[in-house]
Design a protein around this nucleic acid. Sequence first.
RNA 1: GGAGAGGUGACUGAGUGGUCGAAAGUGCUCGCUUGGAAAGCGAGUGUGCCGCAAGGCACCGCAGGUUCGAAUCCUGUCCUCUCCGCCA
Length: 435
Amino acid sequence: MLDIKFIRDNKDVVIAGAKKKHIEVDIEGLIKLDDKRRALQVSVDEMRAKQNTASSAIAGAASPEDRQKLIAEMTTVKESLKAQEEELQNVMKDWRALMVLVPNVPDMSVPEGESDADNKEVRRWSPAGAEGSPKKFDFEPKTAVDLMLAHDMADFERGAKVAGFRGYFLKGDGVRLVWALERFVQDRFVFNDTASPERRFTPMIVPSLVRKEPFIGTGYLPQSEEDLYKTQDGEYLAGTAEVAGMGYYMNEVLEKKDLPIKFFAFSPCFRREAGSHGRDEKGIFRVHEFVKYEQIILCEASHEESVKWHEEITKNSEKLLQELNLPYHVVLNCGGDIGLGQVKKYDIEAWMPSEKKYRETHSASYFHDFQTRRLNIRYRDDDGTVRFVHSLNNTALALPRILCHIVENFQQADGSIMIPDVLRGYMGKDAVSRD
RNA sequence: GGAGAGGUGACUGAGUGGUCGAAAGUGCUCGCUUGGAAAGCGAGUGUGCCGCAAGGCACCGCAGGUUCGAAUCCUGUCCUCUCCGCCA
């Protein structure tokens, strides 16, 4: 949510921003409605003032006759006040409905574009060197699905039998790899003996079953309801730990000295993937049910701070991919490929040899106060002013998706799959084998 | 699932129809005191909206209602807690 004052003062910026994001929203209409809202508000305030004055007069010394007279007068004021209050309420209802649809303004550096095809590569890394091209195979690389089936790391037929479309079982070394990756990422982010100080986060296990408010607050509702599973009791299943993690401080005022707050949040994630039925139908790349470690940051209300932490959490994830020896690139998402609340977003995409292209493993965004205004998360600044904090998040590691990248990049000509060096200690072996 | 209690400011917590935006305490800020600190003493300390200002309006979970007037009464709703039952 944006500040209505900001919208009024920067109408053109907001309109241009929405256009850049390819989001339809009637800003002119909103401002007209807001004019009406303000006029009504002023009028209602004045009538209430009158009523308040009369009420104290009644309570005061007036004689019984005066008292009756004043009460009679107030009865008529009450009628017209009630009518205006009702009108104001109707206006407010429409006003709120419009306000939650207004997108945050994308950063200047966000490129124009409609879809992920228009995202701009900002850097590339491969084990061969920072500017190196992704791994070359002197044989035709197999797909992750074929490799995983060949090594009995997953079972998709039985997955579908049991769980339905996009259902999956992981087995044997498929599971060991997932667990090894979890231990690896936990070591990097939360266990002090190996974590670098800048990557030290407060670990959290957060709910996936979450009430409506945090979804509205983070911007997933009302727009993306069709992508969420809903329970018969009215909660939704979160598609990311961001929802509950951000909800943690909802309606609270924080102390400036406690900022930045850095969460390393784990949760199971559920996504209906509505509207993506044709895409990534096989395997574990796009599934309804997975788990994810997420970096969440709340920082001071300053653009510079937001940018600093945005770069930071992006680098954190890049380091993981580097340690895993997975070639990747970072793209700056174009206007059409960033969400309602995001100011700027980087996607990190790791190389997928069978597809000969990069596929997303991480997504790093910052929001300024878009989410925290909705969630009402504030902090007291040095001068005593209460401000909305800024929020950011990035994937730390999403599982099992990254298995696709690992098995494909580490496959050998003979069909075997090597294990990335950093995971060998956890796995207790160098190559994938069948149980 | 059954029974009960409760939601008030950064926090604890008083307040059952009109000088209540709200006592008191804690915390915080400033000052005094001190070699310095603690303690003590004194003063200050909510948010939002309209307005150049003076000032006005709103907010005691949320939404309605009663009333000239509601934190206070009524109804609904959401949430929290306790006990019993059940369960990992």
